[in-house]
Design a protein around this nucleic acid. Structure first.
Length: 308
DNA sequence: TGCAGTGTTGCTTC
DNA sequence: CGAAGCAACACTGC
């Protein structure tokens, strides 16, 4: 599940491999929606937007990519911005691909020298940016939830305002004070749910919220207003620690995240709580067994002994 | 075999 | 208006 560390690694890869490359053409079998249209117009007009999308990105050069929460924004030379959200199973890959015209599906080219791109998760290609160096930037996404669109640069500010994203937890301006005041916007809600709210803090998802709460020793069902000062400080530190650890491990490939060269991350090998249901707590001298609880449509994992 | 589980986001419902 | 629930989709694992 691409969360902040996975999206950051993807953007780092985009900046390392695709800057200065020109987009010759785009292929897709997904509907491309126009973000500058109101939502109630989307279903009627979205299929028409593919032509507009091709016009917007065709012939433009990739300048740089940036991450905002779990969103990727790719700035092009012609004042167009490509907007990608990988949702749950989407990931971007850079390499040599070929279109099989019989099945209308894309596959790694037999001439591709990077074996990591032959990973079985990398075969569900739904968007292809054809570049001017005989390589492609592709979006692989089993479940087809990922969103890809483009808009003129002049719409950027209003789109960001509408997204209303919370502060970036790895930026210097993200102080303890900022963190606490953001959390306290939801005093009656459970801390686990508040951490997942992108308008409170940017980029945290199910994996890193479980890990941060485990390390801070805070029960996921505690409401924000019951937290005491030491707990806010502990959680502040463990949110940052967990996200940085995720980046240091190259992201989490529990699901099908890969970096843009096709390489999986390693964070899944060092989970303390996430998806460790029934396993012994790894905290020193703790006798707890990791337990799973449901929060509506998602699950939390925690140690009922040391998380209070 | 069949169906619950997987989790991000935004829309719908109450 | 806010919270809760569900849809979008496809594969995995029990």
């Amino acid at each position: 599940m691409p969360e902040l560390p996975e999206v950051q690694k993807t953007v780092d890869g985009l900046n390392a491999y695709t800057r200065g490359k020109k987009i010759i053409d785009v292929w897709t079998d997904l509907a491309i929606e126009n973000p500058t249209l109101p939502h109630h117009h989307q279903t009627i007009k979205s299929t028409l937007f593919l032509k507009t999308f091709k016009k917007l990105v065709g012939g433009a050069t990739i300048i740089r990519s940036e991450r905002k929460a779990k969103n990727i924004f790719i700035h092009l030379s012609n004042d167009t911005i490509v907007w990608i959200h990988m949702k749950m199973t989407g990931h971007l890959l850079y390499g040599s691909y070929l279109l099989d015209t019989n099945t209308n599906t894309w596959h790694v080219s037999p001439l591709e020298k990077n074996d990591a791109l032959r990973d079985p998760f990398n075969r569900f290609i739904h968007v292809v940016f054809i570049l001017d160096n005989k390589k492609q930037l592709v979006l692989s996404d089993v479940r087809k939830f990922a969103k890809v669109t483009a808009f003129p640069k002049k719409a950027y500010q209003s789109i960001l305002t509408e997204l209303a994203l919370g502060p970036e937890p790895l930026e210097k301006t993200f102080t303890k004070k900022v963190f606490v005041s953001q959390l306290q916007k939801r005093p009656k809600k459970k801390i686990k749910e508040v951490l997942l709210d992108q308008s409170i803090v940017s980029g945290i998802g199910n994996i890193y919220s479980d890990e941060a709460l485990w390390r801070a020793g805070i029960h996921p069902c505690r409401t924000v207003e019951t937290l005491i000062n030491n707990e806010y400080i502990a959680l502040y530190n463990t949110v940052i620690y967990s996200l940085k650890k995720g980046i240091a491990f190259g992201g989490d490939s529990t699901s099908d995240y890969r970096d843009i060269t096709g390489k999986p991350g390693a964070f899944q090998g060092s989970h303390e709580a996430y998806r460790r249901t029934g396993k012994p707590c790894r905290k020193k001298d703790c006798t707890g067994i990791i337990t799973r609880i449901s929060f509506g449509t998602r699950n939390g994992h925690f140690c009922p002994i040391h998380q209070k």
